[in-house]
Design a protein around this nucleic acid. Structure first.
Lengths: 344, 344
DNA sequence: ACTTAGCACTCTATGATGCTAAGTGCTAAT
DNA sequence: ATTAGCACTTAGCATCATAGAGTGCTAAGT
């Protein structure tokens, strides 16, 4: 549908705009492009591209700026991911190469590294978030009528919380409660745990007079566990792309990036290995000027995770997509190492 | 040193400026003040006040604005804390009146309530942060070569972290290590734990070949524990008082409010029950336009805590100081209730 | 049927100008 | 000591002119 020349022009506009950030004029392209045509011809072609909706103007006599549709077309058809410099890969590897005790730490560090390399905001998810299961429930007596309740999830993570016992509960009764709960919910996906516990309520009443306190705590622990499934690095970078003085906008963005629901909705990745969402494809209206590149990563039997990069729509896609590819690879390697070390 | 009339004028300027936010002119004061003098007289008095440094102008023909020295004088000599409306006290009490399982939750909620009532940023510290002690160390085997290490502090809080055991460690050896560690460090202030552990290193070598892994984990757990001693509510409110478009300023403020070192330095309260720090008295230069009201609270034998409110220098001090008084009282009451309920 | 030189047109950005409203400092009279 | 009166200062706003960048269109060239 587009001619070769139009493609070249579109690509050049996007590449220049994503690098320099200012609208691209016909004279500039005349010099920039390898072909021998005058600026008038380029103007004609640009008029066509504009008519088709791939580019636009900021005002009637400004240079051209890619539209969201233009970016979309570019990302889908034209972009060639950059090969990432060996030095840069080395630096990723180095940054990831610490002694970590938890997968969480690796994933958290990944968000930090990615955001520092790009000056954008990075969001990283642990592997296997979706089908995390409940693995066990323990209670550790601390004396003084207090116990620590500990929940263990299938990725080996734990959440714990102090609980002050009702005075009328004996050690045996606690044991019984623990057994009942474990019998009923071990192996369940986390999001079903609460419902199942409510079903178990009548049974618990045999042992405890007010089991609702227990349930409250389960709720709050599980909630925390669900919230800590991802990490955000470089939050402040999000503010670099906000119109001057728009404090309202900044506040919206910031509260967005701190709500886990919003984050989860934001990155919903439909299983493609690398996915780019541009501008209004991000459901949240505060993010009309942002794009999100997300990449899944697989860690063999340990499941799939996701890394994502949130930056302005005019980010240099080729470079960023290349980087995400490279980073995904390094992260996978690191995680396999980790699991190998501790679990084989 | 100041005449009665000058005091009245200074007070009126500050009260009006903290309410309306715009510079105060002589004609306005002429109407506002109870005395019968012309605007010219007031102008003369204002010139004196300006000469003494209590007020200033934004430009040569603007109305007067309190200087930091002016606020200081006002807070030290003139301000009368407002009596807080009974309805408002009722609403504080209501907000605090949930079923909490941890002191932390109460303190965190306090920050939220305070920030919502004032539209400023609130920072709350748990009681007894300074002399928190190490109370015990437990290890919970999870199977699969993993254990959860649990640290318990004297305020009943716990920090836990997963640890993947070196393969050559038997259950007995672990027991021994736990015993050694508990013997040596129970009762120590948290900040001395790491040093003591290092002294204990030779002893540990009897049981474990590479005890440094243990130490690392202790370090990271203790660090986390130290970081979570305070809560911040209404972070975003900080941005309401920033010059339009000053994104750099916003970023500075935000990273400030997220670094625990900075927060600790910020609120350093020299033991006065209610302390007001104004503008450049806050060491951090990003906060030249902010004031901080901090109030300590005592919870009987459970120690002393602190609540603080960070807002613009032109906040209504009388109202805010009154509020802090009232809130302190409600919080103390709530905490005493809590401890009574669970520990008596 | 493309391409292109040329030109009128549009819009932004910048800086200068003039005006008003608010407020001040000072002087001379009370 | 107080005050009325007035000259002066400044921010804020609207208006205007100008330069610079870029466009669309037309008419001529290939």
């Amino acid at each position: 549908m587009l001619t070769e020349r139009q493609l070249l022009i579109l690509e050049a506009i996007i590449q220049d705009y994503t690098n320099a950030g200012r609208p691209v004029g016909s004279k500039f392209l005349e010099q920039q492009l390898p072909m021998n045509v005058s600026s008038a011809t380029i103007r004609n072609e640009m008029a066509v591209l504009e008519h088709l909706g791939f580019i636009g103007k900021e005002h009637s006599s400004s240079g051209r700026v890619p539209s969201l549709k233009g970016y979309r077309y570019y990302v889908d058809n034209l972009v060639k991911p950059d090969e990432i410099d060996q030095n840069e890969i080395e630096s990723i590897r180095l940054s990831l190469d610490s002694n970590y005790y938890k997968v969480d730490e690796i994933i958290k560090e990944s968000a930090k590294i990615l955001s520092e390399m790009t000056n954008y905001t990075a969001i990283t998810f642990k592997p296997e978030v979706k089908n995390l299961r409940f693995q066990g429930f323990r209670v550790l007596p601390l004396g003084n009528q207090q116990v620590m309740m500990i929940l263990i999830t299938s990725d080996g993570n734990t959440e714990s919380q102090l609980f002050n016992l009702p005075r009328d509960l004996s050690g045996d009764e606690i044991e019984a409660v623990i057994r009942v709960i474990n019998d009923r919910i071990v192996g369940l996906p986390l999001d079903q745990v609460i419902a199942r516990l409510h079903e178990t309520l009548p049974l618990l009443l045999h042992y405890v007079q007010h089991p609702l306190g227990f349930l409250d705590i389960f709720g709050s622990i599980l909630e925390r566990s669900a919230q800590e499934q991802f990490f955000v690095g470089g939050k402040l970078n999000l503010l670099n792309f906000v119109g001057d003085g728009d404090v309202e906008q900044i506040k919206k963005l910031y509260s967005l990036i701190e709500r886990s629901d919003d984050i989860n909705e934001l990155v919903g990745n439909s299983g493609q290995t690398i996915q780019v969402k541009i501008g209004d494809e991000l459901t949240n209206s505060s993010l009309a000027n942002y794009s999100l590149i997300s990449a899944t990563y697989d860690v063999a039997q340990h499941g799939q995770g996701l890394i994502a990069l949130l930056g302005p729509t005019n980010m240099p896609y080729s470079k960023m997509i290349g980087l995400m590819r490279a980073f995904r690879e390094e992260l996978t390697r690191k995680l396999l190492d980790y699991y190998h070390l501790y679990e084989e």
